[in-house]
Simulated scan of single mutants.
Amino acid sequence: MNRPIRRRTTVRTLLATAVCVGLVSACGGTDSGDASGSPKGGGGQYPLTLTNAWDKTVVEKKPLKVATTSDGDTSIALALGLVPVITPDVEDGGPVPEYKKRGMDKLGVGKLKKYDDSDGTDYEAIAAEDPDVILGMNSWSMDADYAKLAPIAPVITYTDKKHADVLPWEDRLKTAAKALGLSEKADEVIAANRKAVTDAAAAHPELKGKRYTYSVVHPEQLTYMSYADQDPGVLEKLGLVKDEKSKKYTAKKNRISLENLDELESDLLLMTYPFGDEGLLSASELESNKLFQSLDVVKRKNFTVIPSENTLASSMAYPDALSASWVVEELAPILAKAVAGK
């Protein structure tokens, strides 16, 4: 099984294959937390006590200054209409993804204040901003970070350590919104995303019922990503269905050998090369392979690449409150062209 390892959002943005981290929404339950006080509407009731996987955290009053510990948490803040006082520099000087730029533009923000996270979370930089709360709903390093962040400000994070991988973005957003007193706004964001999916599916009825296989080229293997119990995510919300061969694969058994490329055969084949030259093989190497070229799905031109350069592949695997609707907007036309053999 391949572990989900985030790189910075550059040309080689990675796509991961964790057990339940899915094609657009991860599997798992809700993470509403154990609260004393029931935030209602946009205002909330304070003080508010939230239970997390490490402790209980108390938010004394409606937070105004929010620090974030991951890009997904930055997206949560922006989606809820808040400009974080400090965020990790996930772009590392590179371009800001389109969906994030849209969120910033909507709030009239040209640039976010960032800390260098190349060596992990910068606790001193966060403390210097004196935040009211720290969002860590998407952080994979919270097990190491929590004890150092909690003395700075209340940390809003998940209730179970397993949720770092498996919690759907909607539940991450709801938990953060509860702490921020912005539950109504969170509901609006979720409703807008659902409408985007519904509208895209209605606009592309040709996708309904088409069998698909989705494969990712990792450094160590060619991965059968659309295994049977993989969360369906946006691909199936748009009408696609997994190929029958998906039943042969699981999160722990997902390797495809170059001698068995016919396992990729389906009505529609989707590929992603998130590691570029560091992948097991390049796009040109795979696509010039004679066995690959002999596949009916390739001959029919029902084969397409989900781009990673513009963060679509990684955003499809790791959706958040800002990227989810953008993924649908970008992905639906790509799928439609592939189904049409264009």
Rank of each mutant, 00 (worst) to 15 (best):
P39F: 04
S183D: 08
D320S: 06
D119V: 08
C20P: 00
G120P: 06
A127V: 12
K210N: 08
E244C: 00
T272K: 03
E206V: 07
S118Q: 09
Y318K: 12
V133D: 07
P333C: 06
P319T: 13
S325F: 01
L258N: 03
V328F: 00
E329R: 06
K210F: 05
T30R: 11
L112T: 06
S183T: 13
L238C: 02
E188T: 15
L322Y: 04
S141L: 07
G93I: 01
L50H: 03
L286N: 02
L261H: 01
A16N: 13
R255M: 07
D55P: 06
A317R: 08
V133C: 12
T49Y: 03
S139T: 15
D122F: 06
S315C: 11
W169V: 10
D89Q: 04
L182G: 01
L240V: 04
G33H: 02
V58S: 10
S32Q: 10
G37W: 03
V305I: 15
S284Q: 13
P47S: 06
D187K: 13
P333F: 11
H204D: 02
G120N: 12
D296V: 06
K242V: 04
S215H: 10
V216G: 01
T304R: 04
S246E: 02
K61H: 14
K253C: 02
I334V: 15
R102G: 10
D145S: 11
E263A: 14
L135V: 11
K185M: 07
S288T: 14
E278S: 15
T304I: 06
A283W: 04
I126T: 08
K114W: 00
A144F: 03
D92M: 09
A18L: 08
A191T: 10
G43Q: 06
E330L: 04
A283M: 09
V85T: 01
A144K: 11
E220C: 05
E263L: 05
M137S: 15
E330V: 02
D229R: 07
A251M: 02
L322Q: 13
F275M: 12
E287P: 01
N289E: 04
E265H: 09
V216R: 07
